[in-house]
Nucleic acid binder design. Structure first.
Length: 470
DNA sequence: TGGGGTTAT
DNA sequence: ATAACCC
C-alpha cells in the first residue's frame, strides 16, 4: 500500500504529497489563512451545535437530585421541554401539563418561566465556542452555528507538512457513506468532525452540558444532519448523501426557513414534500410566493444554502413578557408592566449599552386563532431618560411606565372593554455608551487589559465586559 | 402552546 | 409596525 495517494487529474487531490523540498518542515506558508479563497474548490465547513433538552439540563445542573428522575420544565400549563428520563415515559416537548401528568404521574415539574438561568448558560456556550473561532451564530438559546472553515484549513496544512496520510472521522457519518481520503472535501469534513467533537468535549468539560453536532458544507445541511443521532452524538454529512438527507424530510416544514405560512401556501399548490418542491416549476411558485422567497426555498429544497454564519455578538434587544388568562383594566396593565420592568432594566444595566427604542406588545383575546393577534407600538426613548440607563438608578422606572402606558393607550381605547392575554416590553436599538463619558472604573481597567485593537464593545462583548458585579 | 429571539418588507 | 422565520 502506498503511503500517499497516486497523482490524479485534479491538483486539489495532491494535498497528501510532501511539499517539494523534502522532509524538512517548512515554515507555515505566509498566506495560509488566505488559502481558502485561493482554492476555489475548498468547501466551507459548518458545525451546528444543538444542546440536548437545554432547559432540563440546566435545571439538572442547578439541582443534581433531579438527575435520574423524569423532569419537565413548565411554563404556564405547558411542559416546554423534558429530560430523557421523562421522554422514555412518553412525555413530549410542548405537551400540556395535564397530558404529561397522565402519561407520567411521577413526572417532576420545575417552573421555567424565568429564563435568566437558561439565558446565562446559553451565552456561556456561545462564548466558549467563540474561543475557538470568531464566527459563531446563535439560533435561539440552545443552538449555535460555527463556521470552522479556517480552522480546518490550518489543520489541513499541518497534516500536509507532517506528511500524515490518515485522518479518522469522529462520530457518525450520515448514511454510513464511505470516506474517500483522496477527496479533499471528504478530508475537510472529517477534520470538521474532529473539531466538532472537541467543541462537544469542551462544552461538557467546562459547562457540564451534552449536545449534538452536525458537520456539513452549509448551515442548512449542518442543522439537518445534527439531529440524525440524538442525544449527545454527532454526525457528518458528505456531499454525496446530501440528496438523501434533504429528501428524507417527510414534510417541507421540516426544512429550516420554510415556516408555517409558506407551508400553507405551498399546500395550495399541491406541493407537500421536498421532492414536490424540487420539481415544481419556478414560475408556479413565483406567482404564489414572489421571486425572492421562491429562489431561496427552491435552493433550500436542493440542500443549497449560501447564507453566511453571521456572528451574533451581543443581543439586539431585551424583552420580557408575561401571558395570562385575563387582563382587562388599565391598572392591571400597569401592574403587569411594573412587574416586567425591573428585571429588564437590570439586564440592560448589566449589558452596559443604552437602548434608544422601547416597544409595548399586547395580545388580545380571541377564541379562534389563539396566538397570532399581537399588536405593538414603539417609540424613541427621550434622551434624558437614555442617560439614566447608564447608572444603577431605578429613576428610569416610573417615567418608563408612563411612556409604556401612553403606548398602550395608542392601541387600546380604555373606555371600551378589552381582554388581554399577553403583555410584553422590549428595549431595542442598543447603542454603546458615548466614548466621552464611559463611567465606571471597571471599564478603564478592562480597557487597559484589552489593548487598542478591540474597538468599542462590538468585538469584546464576550471577553468579560459585562458589568455584573461592580 | 411559552418566553423568548432575528431579519425582511 | 407588521409579518415572517427560528428555538
Amino acid at each position: 500500500m502506498e503511503p500517499f495517494p497516486p497523482p490524479t487529474e485534479e491538483d486539489e487531490e495532491d494535498w497528501l504529497r510532501p511539499q517539494p523540498g523534502g522532509g524538512a518542515v517548512p515554515p507555515a506558508p505566509s498566506g495560509h489563512s488566505k488559502s481558502v479563497s485561493a482554492r476555489s474548490t475548498a468547501c466551507r465547513v459548518i458545525v451546528h451545535v444543538d444542546l440536548d433538552c437545554f432547559y432540563a439540563q440546566v435545571e439538572m445542573i442547578r439541582n443534581p437530585e433531579l438527575r435520574d428522575k423524569p423532569l419537565g420544565v413548565q411554563q404556564k400549563y405547558i411542559v416546554v421541554t423534558c429530560n430523557y428520563e421523562a421522554r422514555k415515559l412518553g412525555v413530549k416537548k410542548l405537551m400540556s401539563v395535564k397530558d404529561a401528568k397522565e402519561k407520567c404521574p411521577q413526572l417532576i415539574l420545575v417552573n421555567g418561566e424565568d429564563l435568566t438561568p437558561y439565558r446565562e448558560m446559553s451565552y456561556k456556550v456561545t462564548e466558549l465556542l467563540g474561543e475557538f473561532c470568531p464566527l459563531v451564530e446563535r439560533l435561539g438559546f440552545d443552538e449555535n452555528f460555527v463556521d470552522i472553515t479556517e480552522i480546518v484549513e490550518k489543520r489541513l496544512n499541518q497534516l500536509q507538512q507532517s506528511g500524515c496520510s490518515r485522518v479518522c472521522v469522529s462520530g457518525h457519518v450520515y448514511n454510513h457513506q464511505a470516506i474517500n481520503l483522496l477527496d479533499t472535501t471528504h478530508v475537510r469534513l472529517v477534520i470538521g468532525s474532529q473539531i466538532a467533537e472537541e467543541f462537544r468535549e469542551a462544552i461538557y468539560a467546562r459547562l457540564g452540558l451534552t449536545g449534538c453536532a452536525g458537520v456539513a458544507s452549509n448551515k442548512l445541511l449542518s442543522k439537518l444532519v445534527s439531529g440524525t443521532f440524538k442525544p449527545n452524538q454527532q454526525t457528518v454529512l458528505l456531499p454525496e448523501s446530501c440528496q438523501d438527507l434533504i429528501r428524507s424530510l417527510d414534510h417541507i416544514q421540516k426544512v429550516p426557513g420554510i415556516g408555517y405560512k409558506t407551508t400553507k401556501r405551498l399546500e395550495t399548490l399541491g406541493v407537500r414534500n421536498v421532492c414536490d418542491l424540487q420539481a415544481c416549476p419556478s414560475a408556479v411558485l413565483e406567482k404564489e410566493l414572489g421571486v425572492s422567497i421562491t429562489q431561496r426555498i427552491q435552493k433550500l429544497s436542493y440542500g443549497e444554502d449560501d447564507s453566511p454564519v453571521t456572528p451574533s455578538g451581543p443581543p439586539q434587544s431585551f424583552s420580557d413578557e408575561d401571558s395570562f388568562k385575563k387582563c382587562s383594566s388599565e391598572v392591571e396593565v400597569k401592574e403587569k408592566i411594573e412587574e416586567l420592568l425591573p428585571n429588564l432594566l437590570d439586564r440592560i444595566y448589566k449589558d452596559g449599552r443604552q437602548p434608544h427604542t422601547v416597544r409595548l406588545t399586547i395580545r388580545q383575546f380571541s377564541s379562534t386563532d389563539k396566538w397570532f393577534n399581537r399588536e405593538s407600538r414603539q417609540c424613541p426613548i427621550p434622551p434624558h431618560l437614555i442617560q439614566k440607563f447608564g447608572k444603577e438608578s431605578s429613576s428610569v422606572l416610573s417615567p418608563m411606565v408612563d411612556i409604556l402606558m401612553k403606548l398602550f393607550r395608542k392601541m387600546i381605547d380604555v373606555h371600551q372593554p378589552f381582554h388581554l392575554t399577553l403583555v410584553s416590553v422590549c428595549f431595542s436599538n442598543l447603542k454603546d455608551l458615548p466614548s466621552s463619558k464611559k463611567g465606571s472604573i471597571g471599564f478603564y481597567l478592562k480597557q487597559e487589559v484589552e489593548g487598542v485593537s478591540q474597538g468599542e464593545g462590538s468585538a469584546s462583548w464576550n471577553q468579560n465586559c459585562n458589568r455584573t458585579g461592580t
